[in-house]
Amino acid sequence: MIWCELPGHWLGNAALTSYGCRMISGLGITLQLVAISVSLGLVFGVLLAFARLSPIRPLAVAANGYMTFFRGTPILCQLFLVYYGAGQFRPFLDSVGLWGLFREAYFCAAFTFTLNTAAYQAEIFRGAIASVPRGQIEAGRSLGLHPPAIFLRIVLPQAAMIALRPLGNEVVIMVKSSAVASLVTLYDLMGTTRLAFARSFDLSVYLFAAALYLMIVETIRRVWDVVERRLTRHLQT
């Protein structure tokens, strides 16, 4: 007996015993998708936030439009737009050598989730940078620091601390949103659970998946709390 069959075995649940291993491997896919999209989205989101705050107007307008679109539409709609829509551009994607990527549901999901979370993360960074008190910048200027130094040494560290909490929430939201990947044939945790239910008609597989999702989300929240407390320990009394 393999370890991932054990929960079903202990509970005496046939459906869980047969599909437990698939669900655990689905959990792996979910975690992969979240890790990829959140980390790539972080890089892209920082760039977007800079573009949004840039004094070059067309750049700021474009970034704002991007953020409005991705924050104002359902992630499911975005995923379908990429996954099904890409097929229409096959000749073009073929000619630039990207069709091999867009043919894969996994790539489409990771791609969409990255674009989506980048928009949300950019909004978090924008808000965090804007909420650093003006006096801090003025104090830096009165010390004779250059604008880049003011930004890197005064604004950014304070903004990063303000952004920490909403970023943790965003990771949790991505774990939950990634469940829609199951609707484009991906066997993530949600996908494997749907498969298990469709074959066994045993509702308890959904409860097991719910327990797994809650476990991930709570773990992320707890770990994030510890990290946050540690990084802001000089501010605590």
């Binding site: 469940a179 199951s182 949600m190 719910a210």
Partner: peptide, 12 residues
């Protein structure tokens, strides 16, 4: 209900 994916809540 904050931790579960909405899709999973819906199916349940």
């Amino acid at each position: 209900f904050r931790g579960l994916p909405e899709l999973l809540t819906l199916y349940l």
